[in-house]
């Protein structure tokens, strides 16, 4: 019986760890006597989240649960995952996953095992009302995920340490921030947020990486157990959408109003999100950029 060690970049039982933990339970249940996963834990108490990619690469950890943005130091191309217009099932069909997996093999020494939270997008959250997709004159807290898009909308991009975002929103140092549909309430930021801009953009997905040596060592029976759990994990899109709906209802209850763009405005808004995102991506990734854009765009 093989035992693998798994770590999540997010704290135990929080939005982006829950399904990963369920995935592990699934493997441990169906893999009795064949393969087991020892879930070591999640978040900063176990490992600096930005070191998890390297830990998977070197085999300190066998399986890691982390978004592409957390290991761009190892694989800058991981940044393109957020820009994909396809579901993971479609990507496995059209060659996009295979291309990305090859890059993971080569540069991260990892198998791109699975993707979760595939159906959850990002949003702009604001404290000042806007009536068109224009952030001119607004100070928006960014991470590298949003920088190009928000800049293209005329925002003044501001970097704020994670622990200081609440205070910064509270006293108006920043007028807004980017975040997935889910998770705002976990952080308590709903107390200092007035608006959410719809529709959402990009994919707030989390990747599950497995050390390539550990992956290669697995027998067919062991891979079978893992693969069927992966299939289950990647089928949770509808469930995730329902969870996001509930989260939106809770946001509304907490006083966050929706600013909704419709029709052509919404289309233009999304087009700008992807165009600006790809533009920045292509500038930084001349080698694999064009091919990835072709594979991931519709």
């Amino acid at each position: 019986e093989t035992t693998l060690r798994a770590v999540s970049a997010f704290a135990d039982d929080t939005t982006f760890s829950v399904n990963f933990q369920r995935f592990i339970d699934k493997v441990n249940e169906s893999g009795k006597g064949v393969i087991q996963i020892n879930y070591v834990g999640g978040g900063g108490k176990v490992m600096n989240p930005f070191e998890l990619g390297n830990a998977v690469k070197t085999g300190v950890v066998d399986i890691g649960n982390l978004p592409g943005a957390f290991y761009t130091n190892l694989l800058p191309e991981a940044d393109a995952i957020k820009l994909s217009r396809y579901t993971i099932q479609e990507e496995r069909q059209n060659g996009a996953w295979a291309y990305m997996n090859k890059l993971h093999n080569e540069k991260v020494n990892a198998e791109l095992l699975a993707r979760q939270k595939d159906c959850v997008p990002f949003h702009i959250y604001l404290n000042k009302k806007i009536d068109k997709p224009d952030l001119t004159g607004l100070k928006i807290r960014v991470t590298p995920i949003y920088r190009a898009f928000f800049a293209a909308m005329g925002a003044e991009n501001i970097r704020t340490a994670p622990g200081e975002v609440y205070t910064a929103l509270e006293r108006g140092t920043v007028d807004g921030y980017g975040w997935p549909t889910v998770g705002v309430l976990d952080l308590g930021w709903h107390e200092v947020t007035k608006y959410r801009v719809d529709p959402g953009f990009y994919r707030a997905s989390v990747e599950i990486l497995m050390n390539l040596d550990s992956w290669k060592k697995l027998s067919d029976a062991e891979r079978g157990v893992i693969n069927s759990a992966v299939q289950w994990l990647e089928s949770l899109c509808e469930e995730d959408k329902a969870i996001a709906e509930k989260e939106i209802a809770r946001q509304t209850e907490a006083g966050i109003q929706a600013i909704t763009f419709e029709g052509q405005v919404a289309d233009d808004y999304l087009q700008l999100a992807y165009d600006s995102g790809w533009k920045a991506f292509l500038e930084a990734n001349t080698e694999h950029g064009p091919k990835l854009q072709e594979l991931l765009s519709k």
Binding site: M47, N48, E51, T58, V60, A161, G163
Partner: peptide, 22 residues
């Protein structure tokens, strides 16, 4: 953490734990 890979990770953690604005 697993032998030598663990020790190299240890060294990287030293940097990661201090690059914090707080």
């Amino acid at each position: 953490l697993g032998g030598e890979a663990g020790l190299t990770q240890l060294a990287r953690n030293a940097m990661a734990s201090l690059t914090s604005f707080t």
